[in-house]
Amino acid sequence: MLIAGRIENFKDFSKFSSIKEFNTTIEMFLAEHKQDFTKGELVAFKRLVRFSAKYAGVANAKIGTIVKAINEKLNGLGVSRSTFERMLRKAKDLGILSIENTAKSKGGKGHNVYIFNTIDVLKKRKLTYCESHENPCESKDEDDNFQGETSILLETSMIKRLNTRKEVPLDSTFTASYVPKEFIEAVKPFFDEAATIEDLWKSVFLDTKAISDIVEPDTITYTAINAFKQAIRGLKRGKVKTNLVRYFTGTFKKLMDRTYSELPLDLFSANH
């Protein structure tokens, strides 16, 4: 078990290269799971995110300290300890948060250490869950967690959600703000659904986060647009045998690898 101490003692638990990457991950997570939290739990979640800013994605404040900060901010109309604890359980179950217990050096239980996970960890967790079931992606839970799943064909996503959830999908105007407008405009004539567009962009984000400080954002965006157009051509020509997301992801990787290999060497030396 970890020994309780200052936040500096736990900075190596951070899974993010920058606060920007951490904030983007939280935005992507909430775009998919905001509805899973009550209003009070959402307030608690966002406050924990703020407490995790010094070392991106890591916090070690006591629950009482965080709850007190919330209530002071909202003039006593904040959240209870039980609400905060419910939020922690949900966040952990959804995979965005890991919790490590600590012990005091002189004995007794210490504070918890809260560690936020990256989007790729969430994606692997969903795929592992899907693969461990005899009938993957057909249960209600799997449909509720459809976004980000690469095992469901995009061509049938709207119909499947309408049949199982009986609700109208949000169109492209509801797409999360982390997706570039140019990419949205390129995709919506074919898939005018926010969740579908976000699924595609998550693949782009995961494949480029390691080089995002080297490659210009516009280059990534327009490479993704080019890859999507090629994926659509492949779909119309019958080359997409299983999954459009996989086809798009593979095409984007090839195009991005080509772009990456053509970057001037001085860019790499400048970042080391």
Rank of each mutant, 00 (worst) to 15 (best):
Ser80His: 04
Asn112Glu: 12
Asp141Met: 11
Gly238Cys: 02
Ser98His: 11
Pro169Leu: 06
Thr150Phe: 07
Lys109Phe: 06
Asp192Cys: 08
Val168Tyr: 09
Glu32Pro: 14
Gly78Cys: 09
Gly148Cys: 08
Phe191Lys: 01
Asp266His: 09
Glu41Leu: 05
Pro264Tyr: 01
Thr219Trp: 11
Thr196Tyr: 05
Lys209Arg: 09
Arg246Asn: 15
Gly108Cys: 09
Arg6Trp: 01
Ile119Ser: 02
Ile115Lys: 08
Lys166Val: 09
Ser269Thr: 12
Glu8His: 11
Pro180Ile: 10
Thr242Ile: 07
Thr65Ser: 05
Asn145Pro: 13
Phe13Thr: 06
Pro136Val: 03
Leu48Tyr: 11
Asn71Ala: 06
Thr242Pro: 00
Asp192Arg: 09
Asp192Ile: 10
Thr150Asn: 00
Tyr114Thr: 00
Arg81Ser: 03
Ser105Met: 09
Lys34Arg: 15
Arg246Phe: 08
Lys20Gln: 13
Ile119Phe: 06
Ser98Tyr: 10
Phe205Cys: 00
Gly64Met: 12
Ile119Leu: 15
Lys253Leu: 07
Phe252Leu: 06
Lys229Cys: 02
Ile66Phe: 02
Ala227Cys: 13
Asn117Glu: 08
Glu100Tyr: 15
Lys68Arg: 15
Thr156Val: 14
Ala91His: 07
Glu216Gly: 02
Ala227Glu: 01
Lys46Ser: 00
Lys92Gln: 12
Leu153Trp: 06
Lys254Cys: 02
Gly57Lys: 01
Ser18Lys: 08
Asp144Val: 13
Tyr55Cys: 05
Asn23Glu: 15
Gln35Ser: 11
Gly40Leu: 02
Ala194Pro: 11
Asn9Glu: 10
Asp192Gly: 03
Asp12Phe: 05
Asp36His: 10
Ile26Trp: 05
Phe190Arg: 07
Asn243Gly: 01
Leu263Ala: 00
Lys241Ala: 11
Glu182Lys: 12
Ala224Tyr: 09
Asn9Phe: 04
Met158Glu: 07
Ser157Gln: 05
Glu216Ile: 04
Asn9Arg: 15
Thr208Asn: 05
Arg258Gln: 09
Phe248Glu: 03
Phe228Met: 11
Val121Arg: 06
Glu185Asn: 15
Ala176Gln: 04
Val245Gln: 06
Leu74Asp: 02
Pro136Ala: 04
His111Leu: 12
Lys140Tyr: 05
Val113Phe: 05
Ile26Lys: 07
Gln230Val: 14
Val49Met: 08
Val67Trp: 04
Arg47Met: 06
Asp12Asn: 13
Asn243Glu: 00
Asp192Trp: 04
Ser261Leu: 07
Gly234Phe: 08
Arg81Tyr: 00
Glu142Arg: 13
Arg233Glu: 11
Ser52Gln: 15
Ala195Ser: 14
Leu88Asn: 03
Ile197Leu: 07
Met256Ile: 07
Glu167Ile: 14
Asp266Gln: 14
Tyr260His: 02
Thr164Gln: 03
Ser139Cys: 15
Asn60Phe: 01
Ser177Asp: 12
Gly40Asn: 10
Pro180Cys: 01
Lys104Met: 10
Glu167Arg: 13
Asn117Thr: 07
Val168Leu: 14
Asn163Ser: 03
Leu244His: 06
Glu185Trp: 10
Tyr114Leu: 02
Ser52Cys: 02
Lys20Cys: 10
Lys124Arg: 15
Thr118Tyr: 04
Leu30Phe: 11
Lys39Gly: 14
Val168Thr: 14
Pro189Gly: 01
Tyr260Val: 02
Lys140Ser: 01
Arg125Ile: 09
Phe84Ala: 10
Leu42Tyr: 12
